[in-house]
């Protein structure tokens, strides 16, 4: 089952980032990862991304297609490039660094949670 995070527009050509977050049921890491993704979407990529959350427990086929072994896994597509970030994403600053999103000093961090 795929559901869009509230407030995310349908995917368009102009979008820079397409996020697919694979979670597993109500595992604690799932909600942490979702919060980080929402934060990044709302604060740093407003209007430049789409984000979907896929629960592997409910949609195992999607996980098989994407060869998801572990959850949470964030699959990031950027044009033709794609990368994965595995884990609870409990360090938003590191996630931004991995995504290559420039952030002013002190802007991202634990205070945002």
């Amino acid at each position: 089952m795929t559901r869009s995070i509230e407030g995310t527009r349908a995917r368009e050509e102009s979008e820079e980032f397409v996020f697919q977050l694979f979670i597993f049921g109500s595992a604690p890491a799932s909600s942490t990862a979702q919060r980080t993704l929402e934060l990044i979407r709302d604060k740093y990529l407003q209007g430049r991304c789409s984000a979907a959350v896929i629960d592997v427990e409910e949609d195992p086929q999607a996980a098989a297609v994407h060869e998801i072994l572990a959850t949470p896994t964030l699959v990031v597509s950027r044009g033709k490039q794609s990368q994965r970030i595995v884990g609870s994403l409990d360090d938003p600053a590191r996630v931004l660094t991995v995504l290559g999103i420039a952030v002013a000093a002190g802007q991202a961090g634990g205070n945002d949670f």
Partner: peptide, 21 residues
Amino acid sequence: AEFPADSEIIGDFRFDPLLER
């Protein structure tokens, strides 16, 4: 069940999808 080489790891995770499969 090869772990994709393009993966970064940030935070804790579990192998639930693999176990499920």
